[in-house]
Amino acid sequence: MPQLPRYEYTGPVDCSIPPNRKVLKDKSVIITGGANGMGLETARAFAAEGAFVTIADLDYVRGKKIVEELGSNTQFVKCNIALWEDQVNVFEAAIKSSPHRSCDIVIANAGISRASGDDLWPLDDPNAPPVKPKLNIVNVNLIGTMYTWKLAVHYFRKQPDTEDRDRCFIMTGSLVSWIDSPANWQYTSSKYGLRGLMRTARRNTHEQGIRINYVAPCYIKSAIRSAAYEAELISKGVEFAPPEDVATCMMRLATDRTINGHSLMITPRSVAKEGFMDVNMDDHVDEGFFKRNQETQLRIIEDKWEPGWSKGRTAEGAKKE
């Protein structure tokens, strides 16, 4: 498998280095939620560099039009990421149709927001029976992306052990993983969960030659949002970033095999001239309680992400007598 170093904190990613676009030619890229917004811009950017892009999305009509626009090195697979079987179909299609029967880069971008309805938020009648909430946002954003991760690992491990292949997994998160966003209960919980997945998985991904990173947009310009609502947000101090900057950020991560276990934040150009920067808040570098306990945790959790490792261990990870 591709040899990667164990994760350790070495400082923030230098985002001023441009993506090495030439390495994307003939790479197989899966992008969930790739028919609209940030996903679409990312699909366009990768396809323009000669990558074979599999767009997974629920919007069949739009997906087919995008493939007609982008050309023969793209394909569309209708997919509800909350359904395991749909996602299996996406990965199988990518392997079958890509130039090298490969799956090199997986961008888990699909997700839904509070606009789809958050059943945790409404205050129900206290004199009536409690109402069981629908957790659709969590099911799509968190559970669906965990399905994508599980499948990516499975298909990455089928990958030939050669320099021209890759095992790169990128998740679309959100800035709400670091800031409070009142009323965004399910959405914020789901994005915190994905950041947690990245932070814990990065400690073992080198054992399977896999890289995992997290991209955190905040307010991105989108045709989905009405002009009136966008104007209202601007009046309240929101600065929008263009979706093209998301695509460039994804490309930076996908083309540099030294980047693993980082969160990059999409920012307005007034904050970072590249349009993105390393959040640099995923490690405890100052001496004290958190750093000491992080180091202890890494000593006591000895699990190896290798087949058969757990045979001599209890469910907790202790050595069997």
Score class of each variant (00 low, 15 high):
Met1Trp: 14
Pro2Lys: 11
Arg6Asp: 02
Arg6Glu: 08
Tyr7Gln: 05
Pro12Gln: 07
Asp14Ile: 05
Cys15Gly: 03
Ser28Val: 00
Ile30Val: 15
Ile30Asn: 00
Ile31Tyr: 00
Gly39Arg: 14
Glu41Ala: 13
Phe46Gln: 01
Val53Phe: 00
Thr54Val: 04
Asp59Trp: 02
Gly63Met: 02
Ile66Val: 12
Ser72Arg: 00
Lys78Ile: 02
Ile81Gly: 07
Glu85Ser: 14
Phe91Thr: 00
Ser98Glu: 00
Ile112Thr: 06
Ser113Thr: 03
Ser113Lys: 01
Arg114Asn: 13
Arg114Thr: 04
Ser116Val: 14
Asn136Gly: 09
Val138Phe: 01
Asn141His: 01
Ile143Ala: 02
Gly144Glu: 02
Met146Val: 03
Ala152Ser: 13
Phe156Met: 12
Phe156Pro: 05
Phe156Cys: 10
Arg157Trp: 01
Lys158Phe: 03
Pro160Gly: 04
Phe169Val: 13
Thr172Met: 06
Ser174Ile: 06
Ser177Tyr: 01
Ser177Ile: 02
Ser177Val: 07
Ser181Tyr: 11
Lys191Val: 02
Leu194His: 02
Met198Pro: 12
Thr200Leu: 08
Arg203Trp: 01
Thr205Ile: 13
Thr205Cys: 15
Gln208Ile: 14
Gly209His: 10
Gly209Thr: 09
Arg211Met: 08
Arg211Leu: 07
Val215Cys: 04
Ala216Thr: 05
Ala223Asn: 14
Arg225Met: 14
Ala227Pro: 10
Ala227Arg: 14
Ala228Cys: 05
Glu230Trp: 12
Ile234Val: 12
Gly237Thr: 06
Gly237Gln: 06
Val238Glu: 06
Val238His: 03
Thr248Ser: 13
Met250Asn: 11
Thr258Phe: 01
His262Phe: 08
Arg269Met: 06
Ser270Phe: 07
Lys273Cys: 11
Val279Ser: 04
Asn280Cys: 11
Met281Gln: 10
Asp283Arg: 07
Val285Arg: 13
Asp286Ile: 15
Glu287Ser: 05
Phe290Cys: 13
Lys291Asn: 06
Thr296Phe: 04
Gln297Lys: 11
Leu298Pro: 05
Gly312Gln: 04
Lys319Leu: 15
Glu321Lys: 13
